[in-house]
Design a protein around this nucleic acid. Structure first.
Length: 486
DNA sequence: ATGTGC
């Protein structure tokens, strides 16, 4: 029997315009809380995302509730768009709660160029970027590094990139965690993972990963936009990628290491994919050190792509990247588990927050933010799709009391890759790109259907629950002019 | 997502 949301045997109670609750029943330790809307929650019954989030709610040590963001859809074990925080004494860590692409994330590079200055050069710039940015499955970096160099990159993240001349001091300041998870220890990363990773630094990868040149189409908050250094018609570069084969290998390795240990801690395998271990288990600590190493690798990866973008912009506009104002707005992770402090029942507690396809959204005053962003809140980067564009928001206080400082990570898929390829045509997608004058370069024909706007939820709808519940505030919207897909 | 899956 299906209820009106299409979810079998599950009662979803609407508690406010944008909040939906699944009360604690059976083995659930906490309720499930969904940030959604009438038009979005209808999609939830179409895949196993809610069942997966209910599984998360049964895990030991979970605090308050298992959270679903408006972009939620089915993932490996945990849903994408899922957030769960665990008590460090009684809680668990789950590789599925982080995802295969460890520290998949987004960064935005600003410029001081406006649309009219770039318009005539877009074709040339696009061709140069497409020819020179390594992208696609199995792509390798322009510069390859040895195992020791790769390990240093994993240990110290952006600091390594800075030493190598790929990063500015300002880049380090504008990256979540300063681009360096302190608990990284590459000794816990397999040789196989390092061998895969050492040729992959500075590559975009495939799937939903992209490099875009966008135009700021709308400013919602003049004050914050000005503080962020954003203005109407400004040219921005968006980069979305992660830890490539290295992160994937770390996830694969630790699922294999951790799965057989679950029995010892009497953790039931609720789903064959669902691996977790108590934080007290030695394998949990090993995973977190390897995960942090892969996270640092991902930050370095996005940084080298930034270096390349600066290089090719300079080659086209004959000005240094500094003169072009190519400073990093921010870099945020959306597949990661981190130790963070929250006030729970009036007491400050250290929790392990899993963000699986969810972006951090810290407000002004948060001790983990530095410099300017401590004063105004962090930029929250929320990519949509290649036609509808992307949003830049600023973190708000309510995210700390309600969602463990988290919001959605993007529009979220609507169609599976397979379904997108089956139902859409290349001609149709190309036509809608042409109609909007968006230059699209993709490594394969297939990816164009897989990544079509129709394959995604409407990002304009996905941001509504976020701003409606004041988890973050709108600052700007940007629309693609050039899209590079792997 | 991934040196791509049935």
């Amino acid at each position: 029997m299906y209820n009106k949301y299409g979810v079998s045997n599950t009662k979803i109670k609407k508690i406010s315009k944008f909040k939906f609750l699944v009360e604690k029943t059976g083995k659930m330790r906490v309720p499930v809380l969904l940030y959604s809307a009438d038009n979005l929650i209808k999609l939830i019954g179409k895949d196993k995302a809610l069942e997966q989030l209910i599984n998360v709610a049964t895990l030991p040590g979970i605090v308050k509730y298992a959270l679903g963001m408006p972009d939620m859809h089915q993932g490996y074990a945990f849903p994408i768009g899922g957030v769960a925080a665990f008590d460090i004494e009684s809680g668990v860590v789950s590789p599925g709660g982080v995802g295969f692409d460890i520290n998949c994330g987004v960064r935005v590079i600003k410029t001081n160029l406006s649309y009219k200055e770039v318009k005539g050069q877009l074709n040339k710039l696009g061709n140069i970027l497409f020819a020179n940015i390594p992208a696609g499955v199995g792509s390798e970096g322009k510069e390859k590094f040895g195992s020791e160099e790769t390990k240093t990159a994993m240990r110290i993240g952006i600091a390594w990139a800075k030493n190598k001349g790929f990063a500015w001091k300002e880049d380090e300041d504008a990256t979540e965690e300063n681009g360096r998870m302190k608990n990284a220890d590459p000794a816990f990363v397999s040789k196989r993972a390092i061998d895969r990773g050492k040729v992959e630094l500075g590559t975009l990868g495939a799937g939903n990963h992209f490099l875009e040149i966008d135009r700021v189409s709308k400013i919602y908050n003049e004050t914050v936009a000005k503080q962020f250094g954003l203005f109407k018609d400004q040219i921005l570069i968006w980069i979305h990628t992660g830890s490539r084969g290295l992160g994937h290998q770390v996830a694969t390795d630790y699922l294999k290491i951790m799965r057989p240990r679950m029995e010892k801690y009497r953790l039931p395998l609720i789903d064959p994919d669902f691996v977790s271990l108590p934080l007290s288990a030695p394998e949990s600590d090993m995973y977190l050190k390897a995960m942090a190493s892969a996270a640092n690798f991902a930050w370095v990866n996005r940084q080298i792509l930034t270096y390349l973008a600066r290089l090719y912009f300079t080659s086209v506009f004959n000005e240094s990247p500094e003169k072009l104002g190519m400073y990093l707005l921010y870099d945020v992770a959306h597949n990661i588990a981190k130790f963070e402090k929250y006030k729970i029942n009036g007491k400050e507690k250290l929790l392990l927050v899993h963000r699986k396809g969810a972006t951090r959204s810290f407000p002004k005053g948060h001790p983990d933010l530095r410099g300017l962003y401590r004063e105004i809140g962090q930029p929250v980067l929320l990519p949509g799709d290649m036609k509808r564009g992307s949003y830049i928001l600023v973190g708000n206080e309510k995210s700390l009391s309600e969602t463990f400082g988290s919001v959605a990570h993007g529009a979220g898929r609507l169609l599976s890759r397979h379904k997108a390829v089956k139902t859409l045509t290349l001609e149709h997608v190309q036509k809608e790109m042409d109609e909007k004058n968006i230059i699209l370069h993709a490594k394969t024909r297939r990816i164009i259907m897989e990544e079509a706007p129709e394959a995604y939820k409407d990002v304009h709808e996905v941001v509504k629950p976020i701003i409606g519940e004041q988890l973050a505030e709108l600052v700007a919207h940007s629309e693609p002019l050039f899209v590079l897909k792997g």
